[in-house]
């Protein structure tokens, strides 16, 4: 599903990673761990075309990442950034707009339902603006968008860093059961489950 072949990433002249080879099969879950600032997020960004790859090739599915395939590749990937960089708008308008842009109909989570329960949201969430949400609420909103978009590949950058322990457990259990290819960057111990996901030690 994802193949990284001899990848080199650099910032200015400093190499973040050289000769990285990694293969993630369809449905596989991979935890990437390593020191902060070592370039793990840059790898996710490179897979989305946001960060230049100095050498090597990235393949998503059968598509090599290049200017011609980038939009197709982005359509396959759900990315949850560390700060969930959503535009400041009212949450209901924002989510509806995202669903509309992705031609997804009849998926509006509404005021009650399994997704609202899983993420512990009350209907009041839909009356607030993104900048008024706490870090945890924003993270859960980001995850809700991911569940609604239902894309085959998930790149999650510290997806549970702002959640309480109960929620961390609940969310991680749910994500690990998904039939998706999931790459997770996290320092949270909740993801340290060798029986459920492989670990790649970065650097």
């Amino acid at each position: 599903m994802i193949q990284l072949q001899d990848i080199q990433l650099s910032v200015n002249t400093k190499a973040l990673v050289t000769g990285l080879n990694l293969e993630v099969a369809k449905g596989e879950k991979l935890l990437i761990t390593g020191e902060s600032g070592s370039g793990k997020t840059s790898l996710f960004k490179a897979m989305l075309g946001f960060f230049p790859v100095q050498a090597g090739q990235i393949l998503i599915g059968t598509e090599p990442l290049n200017p011609k395939t980038i939009r197709l590749i982005r359509q396959k990937i759900f990315y949850l950034s560390q700060d969930v960089d959503l535009r400041n708008d009212r949450t209901d308008l924002l989510v509806q707009e995202i669903l509309l842009a992705n031609h997804i109909e009849n998926e509006w989570p509404g005021t009650t339902g399994p997704l609202m329960d899983l993420l512990n949201f009350t209907p009041e969430i839909w009356t607030r603006h993104v900048h008024d949400l706490s870090g945890g609420e924003r993270q859960r909103l980001g995850l809700m968008i991911g569940f609604l978009l239902d894309r085959p590949i998930w790149l999650l950058d510290e997806p549970t860093s702002a959640l309480d322990d109960t929620m961390k457990q609940k969310i991680s259990d749910h994500i690990l059961k998904l039939d998706k290819t999931v790459l997770i960057i996290s320092h949270d111990s909740v993801w340290q489950r060798p029986e459920r996901l492989k670990t790649y030690r970065w650097g």
């Binding site: 982005r74 990937i77 990315y79 700060d83 535009r87």
Partner: peptide, 20 residues
């Protein structure tokens, strides 16, 4: 820039990401 990049991943279109 981060908001723009994030919008690119969510909206599937540069024009939609640039709209705001």
């Amino acid at each position: 820039e981060k908001v723009y990049q994030y919008a690119l991943t969510l909206y599937q279109s540069r024009l939609l990401a640039l709209k705001p």
